[in-house]
């Protein structure tokens, strides 16, 4: 009889933990599965062989996004000697770096900005859903819900998002948004693309850009290495790069996984429902086993039986 009451209280425990489990389950992880990008995903193809490092794109971005004035003017080329490897930060959504290479007729320049991944790591890592992937392919950020945990900065394989650390009351993530509000949503290319005098940046549908890239590589094989950076990096990105020298020589990180970053946390996420469903029963069972042993032994330490006795009494009381 006593044991029965006890079982009931165990059952109650089981039910309540199952209920709480239902609330605590990270349910959304299915949404990110098998997602290979929107058909309408726009992108930009960057041709390193055409870029001359004029920094017009940097200037255009600065103007379009109303960012603070740079401490080295945009027409000042000395920035390349003064600061070797710049990265996008709280004052600049895009930067151009210079790479001297003996393999090519002129120095190479690489424009860096958010690559607008097909399965953005920043988006999947953010626990308040501050990022959105728009049907046009842009990955935009909502400062109104961001908590400032900076996990997105940890997660982005290209180290793009930057944090405004110097603001006490309105800090936020700063990151290229593909000029979504002002241009992309209206079907227009971003400011940087329009500003480029060398047509080093080509705006278009990602699929088309991939075939344009292949066509250029086929037509002038001596001008390009046989690789499109961004086709597979981090599961594919909207911004794509082709280059006359091996990408590692132009500062590209070749260690970036060729699959979405989300894949690396899937193992853990898959384990979560298992723990939530198996643990309550398992430990309730162990509890019963231990309890029975205690009461069968009977002669066990007095304190021990006192404890189990207490629990039984209380379930009676309810």
């Amino acid at each position: 009889m006593k044991l029965k009451m006890n079982r009931r209280s165990v059952l109650k425990t089981l039910v309540s933990s199952a209920v709480s489990a239902a609330f605590l389950r990270p349910g959304g992880n299915a949404s990110a599965h098998d997602f290979s990008g929107y058909e309408t995903n726009r992108g930009v193809l960057v041709d390193l062989s055409r870029c001359i490092g004029c920094r017009s794109c940097e200037a255009a971005c600065n103007r379009e996004q109303g960012l603070p004035a740079p401490h080295i003017a945009f027409d000042d080329q000395s920035v390349f000697e003064q600061e070797h490897s710049r990265r996008p930060d709280q004052n600049a959504y895009t930067v151009v770096n210079k790479y001297d290479s003996l393999l090519w007729e002129h120095p190479l320049f690489r424009k860096i900005q958010c690559n607008h991944c097909l399965e953005p790591a920043c988006l999947t890592a953010c626990f308040v859903n501050a990022y959105t992937k728009t049907p046009e392919g842009a990955v935009v950020y909502n400062a109104d819900v961001c908590v400032g945990c900076r996990t997105c900065m940890i997660a982005c394989p290209f180290s793009i998002p930057a944090f405004r650390y110097d603001s006490a009351f309105s800090p936020r993530i700063m990151k290229c948004i593909f000029c979504y509000d002002t241009r992309l949503s209206k079907g227009r290319p971003p400011a940087c693309v329009e500003a480029c005098p060398m047509e080093a940046l080509t705006f278009g549908n990602r699929q088309e850009l991939l075939s344009i890239a292949r066509k250029r590589m086929r037509r002038e094989p001596h001008r390009y290495v046989d690789y499109i950076y961004g086709e597979h990096e981090a599961g594919g990105t909207s911004w794509l790069y082709i280059s006359p020298v091996p990408f590692a020589k132009a500062g590209f990180d070749m260690e970036v996984p060729k699959q979405p970053i989300l894949n690396f946390v899937k193992d853990f996420l898959a384990m979560v429902p298992m723990v939530l469903t198996i643990w309550p029963g398992l430990f309730a069972g162990i509890f019963l086993l231990c309890r029975r042993r205690g009461s069968v032994a009977g002669t066990g330490e007095s304190q021990e039986s006192k404890i189990s006795g207490e629990i039984i009494d209380e379930s009676h009381g309810e």
Partner: peptide
């Protein structure tokens, strides 16, 4: 945290349930 006054956002305001930090 950048915005400590939003600590409760993941609970009551905006949800990113597929994120590991959401679980934490």
């Amino acid at each position: 945290l950048g915005m400590p006054w939003r600590l409760h956002y993941a609970m009551f305001v905006s949800f990113g349930p597929a994120a590991v930090l959401f679980l934490v």
